[in-house]
């Protein structure tokens, strides 16, 4: 049975429960959804001994305060905010014991935009089409299909596993469990693949794409980022027969501007797909906020696959080390 775990005492503007997203419903036009920074969400779960698909809290940069209602193990990943207990910073990327009654506040900015919080056992959430992710369009999943607000109370989903119980005991006793997790560098370089309609760009646009900086505009949300910069000339009309798109697809509009599709992306689109953000760097992109600048670097599919596999192996390695320390 789930028990109250976290009382939201102060809530920012776009904070929701998310997991690894929905599978099997893209053909019905339902977006995959899930955490914007998928790697950070999976890592947060790994650090507290959860499976990677448990619901985590995606906290967008703005002041938050949480009261912990029972002893638990938490981990913070991603960026944007520095969690603190009594004005003392809690390190990101490490499991932490937090006792009942503790108040965690997140107000100091950090590089990045989205902070992830996982708890041992995961957060309880409404399941919709096989996922706990909050779908703001269908108002389903997560907590009543909406972003969180002040006075919400989140519950723990599963009982702690034996591993999680010993993790809690060890951390509670004051022992440190240092996991060798490398922080993600917040670089401006976003690696991409050429998209199916890359050839819609003129030769001049090909060069501009790689050699220019683009700025994330305020017209950006969980569905997509609109970016601004030098217009990219196309050699034909920017319309295609509506075709599949996915998270990370870079679309070119008639005005020569680009839309980067993010977690809540639609499933089909009629703009040319000139590029595709590498899965590994979608995490970096999820940490960008309006006014941040980015630059694209084209890589090969093989390189992108290697980056992805490397990231997945990193998660597996971390899970293995945690296990070996307990």
């Amino acid at each position: 049975m789930s028990t109250p775990l976290l009382h939201i005492e102060q809530c920012g503007f776009l904070t929701s429960l998310q997991d690894t997203g929905r599978k099997g419903y893209l053909q019905y036009g339902v977006s995959k959804g899930g955490a914007m920074d998928q790697y950070a969400a999976e890592l947060a779960n790994t650090l507290v001994g959860n499976t990677t698909s448990q619901a985590v809290l995606e906290i967008t940069q703005s002041p938050h305060r949480f009261r912990v209602l029972k002893d638990t193990v938490v981990a913070f990943t991603g960026g944007g905010l520095q969690p603190q207990i009594n004005d003392v910073s809690i390190p990101l990327l490490q499991p932490q014991f937090v006792s009942a009654g503790t108040v965690i506040s997140c107000k100091q900015p950090l590089p990045g935009f989205r902070l992830y919080m996982a708890v041992a056992g995961g957060f309880a959430a409404e399941q919709f089409l096989g996922s706990s992710s909050t779908d703001l369009l269908l108002t389903a999943g997560g907590l009543n299909g909406r972003t969180l607000k002040k006075e919400d109370v989140l519950e723990q989903r599963n009982k702690r596993s034996p591993l999680q119980q010993s993790l809690l005991n060890v951390l509670k006793a004051g022992a440190a469990i240092e996991l060798p997790v490398k922080p993600v560098a917040h670089t401006t370089i976003i690696r991409v693949l050429q998209g199916p309609e890359w050839h819609f760009l003129t030769a001049e646009a090909n060069t501009l794409f790689s050699n220019s900086s683009f700025t994330v505009t305020a017209n950006s949300n969980r569905m997509g980022y609109r970016i601004k910069g030098i217009a990219l000339p196309a050699n034909r009309s920017c319309n295609i027969i509506s075709s599949p798109v996915t998270q990370g697809t870079v679309q070119l509009t008639d005005a020569g501007e680009m839309i980067l599709l993010m977690a809540d992306a639609q499933t089909v689109g009629g703009y040319p797909r000139i590029a595709q953000v590498c899965a590994a760097d979608l995490s970096l992109l999820a940490q960008k906020k309006p006014t941040d600048t980015i630059q694209f670097q084209i890589v090969s599919l093989q390189e992108a696959e290697e980056l992805y596999v490397q990231q997945q192996n990193e998660l597996k390695k971390t899970a293995g080390i945690l296990q070996s320390k307990l």
């Binding site: 053909q27 027969i241 075709s243 599949p244 996915t246 599919l301 992805y308």
Partner: peptide
Amino acid sequence: TEAVPAYTSLAIHFQPQLIETTNS
């Protein structure tokens, strides 16, 4: 994981970490 149809194309989604291969 799933196959998503459109007018003239089909998107085939899969989990790369579950593909066993020594090639790409």
